[in-house]
């Protein structure tokens, strides 16, 4: 109201000062956001090499990479959901269900098996997405429910017993434990999937719309973008990555374990958050960041193991790290 008064001097100058001030701010924030994680990983590796001789060896590092492959894939899928302003608490339950699904259908030709497992995961995502975008159930509740359903489905199909791989065994073993040019195949699958995810995110309209959805759902809707469709898509993508993770999880142990997903959801979310994606909206983040987040968490675990730190202390430390990452994230937002 009062700002309409035409007699006011200096209003032009006031308006033009803001961007200058903002520019300096953005550069600092942008730098921390861009390189903070890489910095953290570098510090961790340097620290690790001093603390333990066994840490900075190719063999150990590849081992770390192999260990984070399943969580890394879950986290990559989770990134899409969190980036779009949601949360997916179902990845662990769906991982169990998908792993059992894969082991249950081990007689299928291998490409068919992979495809159907990925579709199985996507079906969970589609259901969740529909519940969220059509029925208006909050992602927290919808995915909590779908995750529990996933756990139940895993138990029903397996009758509570692990399903061992007998058919296709050699392919599974190669996939889970083989190497290609000294690099473990699970790591190749992880990095390849991450790259595909990142290409989608930074190269397509869908990627931009997911970020927009997380940044401001209302404004995205008002911009003439089908928000329901992209909200659903975020969950479908998450489901697809869970499907790939399930194949890896089965391949690494040659067994379909109905409780393989237990405890993995929070690890996946932690990797996403440590990887710099804003939890609870903002629309800022990347899949590559999540990969770094997963590696940071994996390295810390590995270092603790090498140093013989009590497993319970490891849990405490992990909690502290997650809270710190979120705290730094919210500080950046302001």
């Amino acid at each position: 109201m009062a700002s309409d008064n035409p007699k006011v001097p200096n209003s032009e100058a006031v308006g033009s000062q803001n961007p200058v001030k903002a520019r300096r701010q953005v550069d600092v924030v942008g730098f921390v956001r861009k390189y903070g994680m890489v910095l953290a990983l570098v510090i961790l590796v340097v620290l690790g090499s001093f603390l333990s001789e066994a840490f900075l060896t190719p063999r150990n590092l590849l081992n770390v990479a192999r260990q984070v492959s399943v969580i890394g894939l879950l986290a990559a899928g989770e990134t899409f959901v969190i980036l779009a302003g949601g949360i997916d608490l179902s990845v662990g339950g769906v991982l169990s269900a998908s792993a059992i699904f894969a082991a249950y259908n081990q007689n299928l030709p291998f490409p068919m098996l992979v495809l159907s497992t990925v579709l199985f995961g996507m079906l969970f995502g589609l259901t969740t997405g529909t519940l969220v975008s059509r029925a208006g159930i909050t992602p927290f509740i919808a995915t909590l429910g779908m995750g529990t359903i996933g756990e139940g489905v895993a138990m029903l199909l397996s009758e509570g017993q692990p399903i061992f791989i007998e058919n296709n065994a050699s392919i599974f073993t190669t996939l889970g434990n083989g190497t290609f040019a000294f690099i473990p195949i699970p790591v190749i699958v992880l990095v390849g999937s991450i790259l595909i995810g990142q290409l989608f995110l930074s190269g397509t309209t869908g990627g931009v719309y997911l970020k927009a959805l997380g940044g401001n759902e209302e404004a995205t809707f008002w911009s003439g973008i089908n928000t329901r469709k992209y909200r659903t898509l975020s969950f479908i993508l998450s489901g697809a990555f869970v499907g790939v993770a399930a194949i890896l999880a089965v391949a690494r142990t040659s067994v379909g374990d109905p409780v393989v997903g237990q405890g993995t959801t929070l690890d996946a979310i932690s990797a996403v958050v440590i990887g710099g994606t804003y939890l609870g909206g903002g629309g800022v983040g990347s899949v590559v960041g999540t990969l770094l987040g997963a590696f940071i968490m994996g390295s810390i675990n590995n270092l603790f193991n090498l140093l013989n730190v009590n497993a319970y202390w490891q849990m405490v430390a992990k909690g502290v790290i997650i809270i710190s990452a979120v705290y730094i994230g919210t500080r950046k937002k302001r």
Binding site: V208, K211, A212, G215, N216, E218, A219, T220, W222, S223, I225, Y278, G282, G283, V284, K333
Partner: peptide, 16 residues
């Protein structure tokens, strides 16, 4: 509320 995606780049907001 309905216009901008606050943390998104200005250019991206323009072409959204």
């Amino acid at each position: 509320e309905h216009g901008i995606i606050p943390l998104m780049a200005s250019g991206m907001n323009i072409t959204l």
